[in-house]
Computed example of a mutant assay.
Amino acid sequence: MTSYSPTIQLIATSPMGLEAVVAREVRELGYDQVTVENGRITYTGDLLAICRSNLWLRTSDRVLVRMAQFEAKSFDELFEGVKALPWADWIPEDGEFPVEGRSHKSQLSSVPACQGIVKKAVVDSMKQRYGTEWFRETGGRYVIEVSLLNDIATITLDTTGPGLHKRGYRKLVTEAPLKETMAAAMVLLSRWQPQQPLYDPFCGSGTIPIEAAMIGWNLAPGLRRSFNSESWPLIGEELWEQAREEAYDSVKDDIPLQIGGSDIDASAIEVALAAAKAAGLANDLTFKTIPVGKALPTGDYGCLLTNPPYGERLGDSGEVERALRQFGHMYKQLPNWSAYLLSPSKQLEHYVGRHADKKRKLFNGRIECNLFQFFAPGGLYGWRKGAGQAEENGRKET
């Protein structure tokens, strides 16, 4: 294990509207020094926290090291602030270090110019450590970002690489697929429990059922992929091995799952089956090619969790309206089930036939949606009371 394990500031970036969910995940990992801002959750950790965060965060987009934050109203201030950072502690002599940038409401408004200044400052800093004038950049990848907001520069180092929504199980995609991070957020926001049936009648490529199964079995979503920082000498292979061993030891795959989905599109179901197989869940999830009007799940108590089609995303408005009406008819036959639908539709409650108990604004890509939440009788946890009563009645009958 590496002998150098500094206390560092980490940033888990968040889709708009999911900051509280990401913050809850960070705290559940054991990191309680958390600051929540728009689009980012900042927290304190060590090098092992980088590994754990990448492996476990289901709803974050990526994990960044916050190298520094300082005022930069001029290129000189930006250059000196970046140059003063210990880049050679993180980046080896052969490391590849591209610079990305963005600027909003700042005097340094030219992003390409800021990127160039940051690159030059990092090179100058590393020259002092390595005693060379030229860096080949043929080794591991260390993506640096300069983000300027109201003349405050935040300098970060990306530990993730491809976004955390890329779990590794979805090789094929359907039209307008739901991101894995959003599907996981829907499951977490529903407070679904693995003992409870869960069904998605508009399952598409199966993302919601797969993410639910991974949550139910406590499968770390990053176990089947790699990350940029796995090749970083500062972290070392042993810390990554430790984090992965912890994740494997935490799996609870002895819990019986009652999770399924259906879709009218047979090709989408083929994609869902392939994804379930790639995720190691082929024998534990059920997928069917049927229209929503015939998708009546079994079980006295359960959770409908779905992202129905909508006009802005796919299909025409007439088809969407018919599908939502059929969902409403189906839902009326499940009086003890809760339902959670992510949709931009202003008429969704009308089609379902009742007012939502709660609505939460979320963004599916760039489309503003609501997570419409219809609770089972007894409120958010009513199914537990009913299920417990049914179990008690069963004992009395025997």
Rank of each mutant, 00 (worst) to 15 (best):
P6V: 01
P6Y: 02
L10N: 06
I11M: 07
I11Y: 07
A12N: 04
M16N: 11
A20N: 14
I50D: 05
R52P: 03
S60K: 08
V63Q: 05
V63Y: 05
S74A: 07
D76H: 12
P86W: 05
I91P: 01
P98Q: 09
V99C: 03
Q107F: 10
L108Q: 04
S109Y: 15
A113F: 08
C114Q: 13
G116K: 12
V118Q: 06
D124P: 06
Q128D: 07
Y130V: 08
G131C: 06
T132C: 05
W134M: 14
R136E: 15
E137H: 11
V143C: 11
I152F: 13
T159W: 09
K166R: 14
A176H: 05
A183D: 04
L188Y: 04
S190V: 00
W192S: 00
Q193D: 12
L198Y: 13
P209D: 02
E211D: 08
A212D: 05
M214L: 11
G216M: 00
W217R: 02
L223K: 05
S226H: 10
E230A: 02
P233A: 05
P233Y: 06
G236D: 06
L239Y: 03
E246N: 01
K252I: 08
A279C: 02
G280V: 07
G280M: 00
N283E: 15
D284H: 15
D284Q: 11
V292G: 00
K294Q: 10
K294R: 11
L296N: 06
R313Y: 04
R313G: 02
L314M: 12
S317A: 15
G318Q: 13
G318C: 08
E319S: 13
L324W: 15
R325D: 10
Q333E: 10
L341P: 04
L342Y: 04
L342D: 00
Q347M: 10
K359E: 12
K361I: 15
L362E: 06
C369R: 01
C369Y: 03
P377A: 00
E392N: 13
N393L: 15
G394E: 10
R395T: 04
